[in-house]
Design a protein around this nucleic acid. Structure first.
Lengths: 197, 197
DNA sequence: GTCTATATTTCGATAGAC
DNA sequence: GTCTATCGAAATATAGAC
């Protein structure tokens, strides 16, 4: 038993290590540009060693995508759930998303690819749909409470998500870009665009 | 002379044909996933034939990126220049951009990649920077005229560009999505977010 | 000037040593 | 159970036929 747990533990550590390296490479070259050899080299092991822990290259990519999305959803939902009303949720969402992406710059490009590929690369979970639906329901909440205009919540949710990506992508390209200030600016703008009256 | 012009003409036609096929493939698999063989097959010629007209695969990709960006800029700037004031320019920009992308769906993914790669794949022209600067100067114009709030025009320009991409990407994934209605919704939202008072 | 045939490298995956 | 050695396919690029 003790032996089993030790093996499982190191196995998980290896998988985690491989996934981390893969995310790093994907953030530089994109998923199609990330070769198995590159992953193996980055992890300091051989190609076949990678393919032992995962059955194919696609499985590695899949695991990396899942890890990135999970981290994003976890970081964001935690903040959103603590908000009292629709406006607070939107503000919390924008703030949490940008903070998370700022703390995990290698995740940004991967997230954008997941959304761009529209589930083709992440079979089962259509990341894009998941994301806009979460924001759309926040907007619907605000509409029901009479705080927001009668907007198309799907369109606005997609726009907010895209705006986030656009701003964060610029920060990736230019690290001197003030991400905190941008988050504040975005929060204000979105509320102005949504508010009733 | 006549012979020279004829040769140049067919040469240009070939290049154009190759570029068109490349854009189609890139829109499906992304730039790293688009192989020289696939391009050649799509164009109905051999790999080496492609490499005669362009010196390397990267040059083909580069030409495709340039073509897509040029078409985008041309379509948009034409509409924007006809607008009388800052608000009209913003509205025209959003409308023209979404109409253009709607008419050229294969360009969408390529444009997003250009921006995501931040010039790494398109040496010389940093597409992302070009794009936000154009919108930012429209916003600055509105600020000077006292029509817009004192926003950070760079942040807002990036957000607007990102919002466009997000909405259009959804339309690609779901063709039943009403792009015209979304454009109207976006125009309204952006003006609300920018307007002074 | 245009493209076929070929060379070289790198890819993802398997079989089998330890 | 873990990884080295190796395979066949597909990648890009070149050399030379027409």
């Amino acid at each position: 038993m003790t032996e089993n747990r030790r093996l499982t533990f190191t196995e998980e550590a290896r998988r985690r290590q491989i996934v981390d390296c893969t995310i790093g490479l994907m953030s530089e070259r994109g998923h199609a540009g990330t070769s198995l050899s590159a992953i193996a080299a980055a992890a300091g092991i051989s190609k076949a060693a990678v393919l032992y822990h995962f059955t194919s290259k696609d499985k590695v990519i899949e695991a990396a995508l899942a890890h990135v999305l999970d981290a994003y959803v976890a970081a964001v939902s935690q903040q959103v759930e603590a908000a009292p009303d629709a406006e607070g949720m939107i503000v919390a969402y924008i703030g949490a998303a940008m903070r998370h992406l700022g703390e995990h710059p290698t995740h940004v490009r991967v997230i954008v690819e997941v959304l761009a590929n529209t589930g083709a690369a992440a079979p089962g979970t259509t990341g894009a749909t998941q994301r806009w639906q979460a924001v759309a329901s926040m907007i619907d909440l605000g509409k029901e409470a009479g705080r927001f205009r009668d907007v198309d919540s799907r369109v606005m949710a997609l726009a907010i998500g895209g705006a986030l990506d656009g701003v964060v992508a610029e920060w990736i390209a230019d690290p001197t870009f003030d991400l905190d200030a941008a988050a504040t600016e975005l929060q204000t703008a979105v509320l102005l665009a949504l508010r009733a009256g």
